[in-house]
């Protein structure tokens, strides 16, 4: 009864290519490349220094409780209000690249803490964290404002040189 057709499009590569994020950076004076997930888009040149300045040294605005500051999310507070600084404040130390792989789903199923099941994957964590703030503060919000689309991305989005030829046929309504 199963469908045997349906092309295997290598979308898996989108995420699987990403290597664990190891960022050699100090807290200040760095512009570094967030490129572990780069695939459809190039990596982001992230000016850490400028963000620290803009946020007036309030690390917790981005690093929830991992930088030793109290968490902001109401659902996190009950447990994490006294949590110490984490071993690594990097996003990737908590946020998984493949949150919904069978292995990771099996782990999260055993976790009785429901909130952790809602923990976004790494890509989502980046975007939610950046976009949430950018929308409020007037930072860049367009996709290509932060990272340029790769050729692979143009193919994926049928845009740029892969854009569909304009035609008058409107298809079936």
């Amino acid at each position: 009864m199963g469908l045997k057709t349906g092309k295997q499009v290598g979308l898996a590569a989108l995420i699987a290519m990403a290597a664990p994020l190891v960022l050699p950076f100090s807290v200040h004076g760095e512009v570094f490349e967030l490129s572990s997930l780069a695939n459809l888009y190039e990596g982001v040149s992230f000016d850490h220094d400028m963000h620290i300045e803009a946020l007036e040294d309030d690390c917790s605005l981005c690093h929830h409780h991992t930088a030793g500051t109290p968490p902001e999310e109401p659902t996190c507070i009950p447990c994490h209000k006294n949590s110490p600084e984490a071993d690594s404040p990097a996003c990737s130390s908590c946020h998984l690249i493949e949150p919904f792989s069978s292995a990771n789903l099996a782990i999260s199923e055993k976790n009785p803490l429901l909130h952790h099941k809602a923990k976004p994957g790494l890509k989502a964590a980046f975007h939610q964290n950046c976009m949430g703030c950018h929308q409020e503060t007037g930072g860049p919000v367009g996709c290509q404002d932060c990272h340029a689309m790769t050729e692979k991305g143009e193919k994926f989005y049928n845009t740029g040189k892969y854009a569909p030829k304009p035609h008058t046929e409107t298809g079936h309504h």
């Binding site: 349906g6 979308l11 994957g121 975007h127």
Partner: peptide, 20 residues
């Protein structure tokens, strides 16, 4: 189903979403 769900993987749209 054929390409992902059957093998325990999430649908393509879920995995591709940048916003989670």
């Amino acid at each position: 189903y054929d390409t992902r769900l059957k093998f325990g993987r999430p649908p393509a749209c879920v995995e591709s979403c940048p916003q989670g």
